[in-house]
Amino acid sequence: MATLIINEKKYKIDADPEMPLLWAIRDSVGLTGTKYGCGKGLCGSCTVLLDGKPIRSCLTPVSQAEGAVILTIEGVENENKVLQEIWADMNVAQCGYCQSGQIISALALLKENNNPTDEDIDTAMNGNICRCGTYQRIRKAIHKTAELTNTTTIK
């Protein structure tokens, strides 16, 4: 048995310690917002935050995630609702499949850097592939979120 802390909830699961966190989250816990894309850490669809850092859950064994604080797309509304709202408002998504990973990566970037440049965004988001090609809107959504969040903070 392993215990995972996901979106502030504890889950006791019966999973092989070697099982990638991705499949534990999806199949054992049943949170399907985190996606499989490549299984090799190449596309970023499976990105979640582990103790605040973005990681590829398809490569991270359950044993390494035990006891850590895990955030998946289902928990983003409690972390950065503005990002989520802007993302929806700018209609970033096309098919939507990679967007959980994109949003988690963007969330991590904005935690580190509240006013990223295009270059900062490209660097932070380069591990996340979008086959639909929504990159232009991703950049805009991150800029807009930074702008709104910063204004709110000043107020």
Binding site: E74, Q84, A88, N91, A93, G96, Q99
Partner: peptide, 11 residues
């Protein structure tokens, strides 16, 4: 906007 745009950001 896509009728699913809010859904797509929620997982």
């Amino acid at each position: 906007k896509s009728i699913d745009s809010k859904g797509f950001v929620s997982g």
